[in-house]
Design a binder for these strands. Structure first.
Lengths: 242, 242
DNA sequence: TTTTACCCTGTAATATCTTACAGCTAGCTA
DNA sequence: TAGCTAGCTGTAAGATATTACAGGGTAAAA
């Protein structure tokens, strides 16, 4: 059975339940006891889109949420905040500092002995991560994780794609029909760089009125109530990258 | 030698030349004769960049550019335009239609018999793809490609990360010592949501003057020239998560 | 005790943004 | 031909942000 045969079923899942079952199955075949997949799309503050497929022990997940460990979790920082493209294997170099070490030790009590986290980024401002863990605690377990790290990363990619297809089957208005013109992006970018209307006008060789016009149009498309709102949304949605 | 030992050298490359050599080496070890990696950022106008690492035959690359094959290349559409997260193996299902088939057949004449393309997306609007090809033309070659598809995807991830570090010379976007106070974050968050100073003042039960004060302090810390700039920076730096 | 960080407030001139009105050109497509 | 999109411009009142001046407090650390 090839890797593709292993992952393809994910794309056929029509429901979140099926996705959970299939992922559990695949993770098990790779030798992992636990998994958690999370994706978040910073479309806006008012309409954030977040999706979590939890294959972690409920008790640990509850504790994680209760203590707001997301803020100190280095794997979260690596995959979501810093938006790195490469996986991270859980070791002491990663979990350094008192808070992180404490969190890591606690997680071991729930059966998360060894593991790794895999980032995936979609092209629409969506950042996701898949964490895979095993209750085996040995050097051999670590070596096995390393040996299948490619497959694991691929699983993350497929899972992300599958999730997008299910969750976005009724895609939010903000993500689909959001297309800014070149000029609108240009104005937004310079505005995000701290330029005033007049300065942008000089840069683009147009009048200040025109800059206002484009920024207004961009804001209307994104449902922004003012210039700051428009900039925040455009960045969060990945429409511009200052 | 584990996969990680194989890929880690990419992150140590300090120059584009070293990156090319290392990638050629790794691709060779995976059994590929040719590779091409390209990344493009179409969301950034103030800091745009496009980067191509070519390990394809020069003649084919020249022909590709000359005929603007990018427009009909289904692998490009898959990875860059549609921004899919999963790899695509070159087969007849992918290269369908007269134009695509013709292009595919031409590419075979330059030694690109079998291959696959792997998308990678960074978190900053950057879309990249790595294509790997072999001059072997057999079912066995195809099977081998499938068998190492995980490693290949991982290579794409590492190559992307390595490229980012070189091309962007490791942007100091995430300043670790940058710390905003609770009030500053609070004001920034509401401002990013489109609230005016007066509205934020009502929400926080303080005067508008105080809101101005906090936003000013936050801006100064981040070297922002105005409110919009401060919001853009705070989001980009992950200091606030709207 | 002094220092430091954080929080809060006031006035006022000036700069900038927002919004409403109104109208132009060019290129493409049905 | 008409309709559409993208781009561009003008005026003007009112809302909001920026800046510089001034000052108050608490709590914890040195």
């Amino acid at each position: 059975m090839s890797d593709l045969d292993l992952f393809e079923p994910l794309l056929s899942c029509g429901t979140v339940e099926a996705l959970h079952t299939t992922t559990t199955n695949i993770a098990g075949q790779l030798g992992f006891d636990h998994f958690i997949y999370g994706v978040q799309v910073n479309t806006s503050i008012t309409r954030p889109y977040q999706f979590i497929l939890n294959g972690y022990p409920k008790e640990w997940r509850a504790r994680y949420i209760e203590h707001n460990y997301q803020k100190i979790d280095p794997t979260y920082a690596h995959c979501i905040t810093k938006k790195q493209a490469i996986p991270v294997i859980w070791n002491n170099q990663v979990f350094k500092g008192d808070d992180a070490t404490k969190m890591r030790n606690e997680s071991r009590e729930f059966g998360l002995q060894r593991g790794a986290s895999f980032p995936v980024h979609g092209g629409h401002g969506d950042a996701a991560m898949l964490s895979l863990a095993t209750s085996q605690d040995s050097c051999k377990a670590e070596q096995e994780i390393v040996s299948i790290i490619g497959k694991s990363q691929l699983l993350a990619c497929y899972l992300h794609e599958a999730t997008q297809r299910i969750v976005l089957s009724k895609p939010p208005l903000l993500l689909t029909k959001m297309e800014l013109t070149f000029r609108e992006k240009e104005c937004l970018l310079w505005a995000a760089e701290g330029k005033t209307g007049g300065e942008i006008a000089d840069i683009l060789k147009v009048t200040e009125r025109t800059v206002t016009f484009h920024l207004q149009n961009a804001g209307n498309k994104m449902g922004a109530s003012n210039r700051q709102h428009a900039i925040a949304r455009a960045i969060s949605m990945g429409l511009i990258a200052p």
